[in-house]
Amino acid sequence: MKFPRRRRDPVEVNLTPLIDVVFLLLIFFMVSTTFETRQALELELPESAAGTALEASPVTLVVTERGRYRLGERELGAAELGEALSAEADQARLHGLVVEADARAVHADVVRALDQAGALGVRQVRIATRETQATSTQAETP
């Protein structure tokens, strides 16, 4: 007896659900990842031997060597500094203001930032520094 052969449908792998899952995972990781933007800013803080470590302030103003300012995520020029600081003035009065000025920054740019903070009533201002490097060439006594 001869049986008729059934025709088999060609086997296909449906990749659409796999692609959907991959895109959903990609979107999830992009949204849930926090990006550290402060690492991109190359800032060389001046050294200080008498500095003490303090907790971070929620209001940090960065002065770059080119005379630009960064407050939070915003990069500002000298003209926009007063308006941006006034938006953060309540937090700065409550917790203080940390000024992170590059060691190569012009002194006038730092003073301009301090003047703006003083005009807004911010009285607790700290200037960020880094520890001095211990010299290894000190004479040892036997």
Rank of each mutant, 00 (worst) to 15 (best):
L61R: 07
R130T: 01
A119Q: 11
G82A: 13
R104H: 08
V21K: 10
A101F: 04
P142V: 00
A56S: 15
P17K: 07
P10M: 05
S48G: 10
V59T: 08
Q116I: 06
A92N: 07
E44S: 02
E83I: 02
T60Y: 04
F23G: 13
R123N: 06
L24F: 14
T52H: 03
V11F: 12
V11M: 10
V110G: 02
Q116P: 01
L97E: 09
R66D: 06
E140H: 00
R68F: 01
F29G: 13
D20M: 14
A78V: 06
A108E: 12
E65K: 08
A128S: 07
Q91A: 15
G77N: 09
L94S: 11
V62N: 00
L94F: 09
Q39A: 10
L24H: 06
S48R: 13
T129C: 07
Q39E: 08
D115K: 13
R112V: 09
S48I: 06
V63L: 02
R6F: 02
G51N: 11
R6D: 05
E83A: 12
L76Y: 02
L43E: 02
E36N: 15
L61T: 04
E73F: 03
F29A: 14
A113L: 11
L85F: 00
A108Q: 13
F35E: 12
A105G: 00
A87I: 00
S32W: 01
E83R: 11
S136K: 11
R130A: 01
L97D: 09
D90Y: 00
D115A: 12
Q133H: 03
F23Y: 12
V13E: 11
G72S: 07
S48M: 07
E131Y: 00
P4E: 14
L45T: 02
R70M: 01
Y69S: 03
T132S: 10
A78I: 04
H107E: 15
I19Q: 06
E88N: 15
A84G: 05
V122F: 06
V11R: 13
V22C: 14
L81S: 03
F23A: 15
A50G: 05
P46M: 03
E100W: 02
A134R: 14
I19L: 14
A108W: 06
P17E: 04
T33I: 10
T60I: 10
V98G: 01
